[in-house]
Design a protein around this nucleic acid. Sequence first.
DNA 1: ATATGGCCCTGGTTGC
DNA 2: TGCAACCAGGGCCATA
Length: 272
Amino acid sequence: MPELPEVETVANGVHVRVAGERIRAVWCSGMPQTFKTPPGELQAGLTGCTIDRVRRVGKHVVVSLRAEAADRELLVHLGMTGRLLVSHADVPMPLHTHLRLCLEDGREVRFVDARRFGRLELRRIGEDGGFAGPGLEPLTVPPEGFVALFHGRTLPIKAALLNQSLLQGVGNIYADESLYRAGIRPTLAAGKVSRARLLRLHAELQAVLLRAIDLGGSSVSDYVDADGVRGFFQLEHQVYRRQGLPCGTCGTLIRRTVVGGRSTHSCARCQK
DNA sequence: ATATGGCCCTGGTTGC
DNA sequence: TGCAACCAGGGCCATA
């Protein structure tokens, strides 16, 4: 499941490959729920535009355009299984392809999403200066701002980490991994986590996200980057999907529970 | 305002 | 071996 490090890897990979290229034609599948912007509107808004920049905002890939089209940008949410690939046009179109940006140099940017939790949206840039997302960025939020997010909240700290309108970009993997590294029990009410523990969580979350970006993300399920290459952070997971295996610190078996409707992996002894 | 739970969707895994 | 049931989960929506 693409989270911040995976989306960052994808966005950077696509950027270096296609920035400056002109979109000659746009093809859309007919899948209604994939398109927050109707396919026809998306085609009209992108055809003939030049790609300026591809960046990550939260879990979104944001494709901004150049010159006369600089008033709009394409938002791509990868959902669970979404991929953004750069391929030559003669490479057969994968099953579940929903968008093709056909470039003038003969390559294509392809959005492929089997499970269809991903979304495409063409967004107007207004006074806001571009899409900023609903929450704060985990890698740039200062410690005090991070602590303040959880004040007085009764929902489990893990559910708070997953709430994109608080922090954007954290998903199930990095929520579990950062809570384990900070020694915090996932079910503890967010407002009950001590200030010291929250400061620890802030540091551990940033560290784990940066390390994962360095390794090209975690490849679980079928995540791959813009070249179809897998990441390697899954080799450093301490708890995620390691239920029944011993905790690396104390040897207690990692347990799997459900918190906020999400599978949750933790060590009962190390996380208080 | 805040919190909770159901739903969407298909491929991979599990179980009989 | 083959097939069906089950599970994964981010975001959105209805509900309390």
